[in-house]
Design a protein around this nucleic acid. Structure first.
Lengths: 117, 117
DNA sequence: CGTTAATGATACGGGTCCGTAACGATCGGG
DNA sequence: CCCGATCGTTACGGACCCGTATCATTAACG
């Protein structure tokens, strides 16, 4: 069941949601951080630094730094994997889940407003 | 004719497109720059620094700097308004139009791939 | 053991962006 | 004319992020 959307609608949706994010000061998250956050909350755990780096096609320091800043915002947490203490398992948080949910609602709401364009 | 999309679909769409942008190295554009670019290409001209700043709810230097960097990328151009030489009119470019079009196609394509989630 | 491999974190130099404040150029009204 | 208002830009200090290279810790294996 494909989701049908026309190019002009896609652009208006993209613009409106980005405008919302900017206006609400929630543009703290870069494109990379957004991709990381949504991967953590949409894909099945466990998530590791290396795994995320591979999925995004970026280097490990990028993930480490993104987790640092998102951790400061309370969106994710890190915990050492006790079975293999080299690994770090990235965990979800309530605040992170709420932020993701809010983003989803934003997109849904803006999509609803977009008529035939 | 509202565009119907469920929260889980919205999130998968948002993630996939952001993943594409990151992987293709097109994440040069921040959320602010994206909002500015799409406003220029979707809303009726003429566009001014002050007008864009008001629409985005940011200060004028933010717009000036964004136009600087997007200008370097060839996505927009600036021209002095000869009728009131205080104003600067932001103009579209072929490269910018292509970039916007590419983004639209990306969103449309990813939306099509998203089934019932 | 000791050696190799793998993981995530850190150091460094460079670039970009931010917000506030100030600036030069231009217009308009008295 | 001139003075205030408006426009876009620039200066400054600080924060963040990048990519590369390197590090400490831990695991795996001979």
């Amino acid at each position: 069941m494909p989701l049908e959307i026309r190019p002009s609608q896609a652009l208006r949706l993209w613009r409106q949601v980005h405008l919302d994010l900017v206006r609400d000061g929630e543009s703290d998250l870069s494109a990379r951080q957004t991709a990381i956050l949504l991967t953590i909350y949409l894909e099945l755990p466990p998530h590791t630094v290396r795994g995320l780096a591979a999925q995004l096609g970026v280097t490990k320091p990028v993930i480490t730094r993104a987790l640092d800043s998102m951790g400061k915002l309370g969106l994710v947490t890190r915990r050492r994997d006790e079975t293999d203490r080299r690994n770090v398992v990235i965990q979800r948080t309530v605040a992170g889940a709420l932020a993701v949910e809010r983003l989803a609602d934003r997109v849904v709401e803006r999509a609803r407003e977009i008529g035939a364009g």
